[in-house]
Design a binder for these strands. Structure first.
Length: 264
DNA sequence: ACATTGACCTGAGAGC
DNA sequence: TGCTCTCAGGTCAATG
């Protein structure tokens, strides 16, 4: 699940659960999730401290502690943040507070990561992450720049974290669905108006998704994400039937009628 | 330099 | 009920 909207809501949950509470200790229940750190380093960096701020870049979450260290969380394919009294079933990393509930990083499939950083900015630079699509400095012009001299399918490009940080399989499908662009369309052949439609849809959809998830409401019924079923009538144009295929190695749903390729 | 593919993990859900 | 099979929303190293 965890693409940009999900991670943004994890960030908010992190703040309401963990901010300003004194950390009693931490536990690593599966060391395979550790990113360039050890349980001991996490304990030394966090025990006795408090979290004072959070940041998100794409799908990456950072939390600053009073010790000066930053906790780093990436949620992989099945990661989640849980706030409560007892660790959930697939809990891999737990922060216990002196008062209040504990914060657990759960991740069934172990693709997620937990680390300790001195500075999120240098992490973002080292990882060569692209701009976050909700960053205020990320406008249409910057988006156009990111697309120039790129080739391949628009879907693969939007999922490339070095181009734009935060989009994954589901929300890329949604963005192209709402923009009316065939996910197989070649980037180098996309017209200016098509690129603009993609950028505008990206902003609009991500903001809506964050708000809906925060209040635990589904996306509107004419959104693809509520209708990922092969053969179903297209919930947007009504004329096509949703097709399921593989693009850029990922399962892809699209409407062959309103998502045009050639003239896109 | 850039795009594409397979491997990494584990469990849920479908089908028999 | 229980077995087997397929699939999963991310990333990285290796390949073209």
């Amino acid at each position: 699940m965890p693409e940009l909207p999900e991670v943004e809501n994890y960030r908010r949950r992190f703040e309401s659960c963990a901010l300003r509470r004194r950390i009693a200790g931490v536990e690593v229940t599966d060391a395979r999730i550790l990113h360039e750190t050890t349980e001991r380093a996490l304990r030394e960096g966090l025990a006795g401290a408090r979290f004072v701020s959070t940041r998100r870049h794409g799908k990456h979450l950072f939390a600053e502690a009073t010790s000066g260290a930053w906790l780093y969380l990436h949620f992989g394919m099945t990661g989640d943040l849980y706030c409560g009294a007892d660790p959930p079933r697939f809990s891999r990393f737990v922060v216990r507070f002196v008062k209040g509930e504990l914060l657990a990083f759960e991740d069934m499939r172990l693709f997620g990561r937990v680390g300790l950083l001195s500075d999120p900015d240098s992490f973002v630079a080292r990882k060569r992450l692209g701009l976050d699509p909700l960053d205020e400095s990320f406008g249409r012009t910057r988006f156009e720049e990111r697309l120039t001299r790129r080739r391949g399918s628009i879907k693969a490009l939007l999922m490339n974290q070095a181009v734009i940080a935060g989009l994954g399989n589901l929300w890329v499908d949604e963005i192209l669905f709402q923009s009316g662009i065939d996910p197989r369309a070649r980037v180098e052949r996309l017209s200016g108006p098509s690129r603009r439609r993609i950028f505008d849809a990206m902003r609009r959809i991500l903001r809506l998704a964050i708000a809906r998830q925060e209040s635990d409401r589904p996306m509107p019924p004419h959104y693809l994400i509520e209708n990922r079923t092969a053969g179903a009538a297209c919930p947007r144009c009504g004329a096509g039937n949703l097709r399921r295929t593989v693009i850029a190695g990922r399962t892809t749903y699209f409407c062959p009628v309103h998502q045009l390729s050639s003239r896109a």
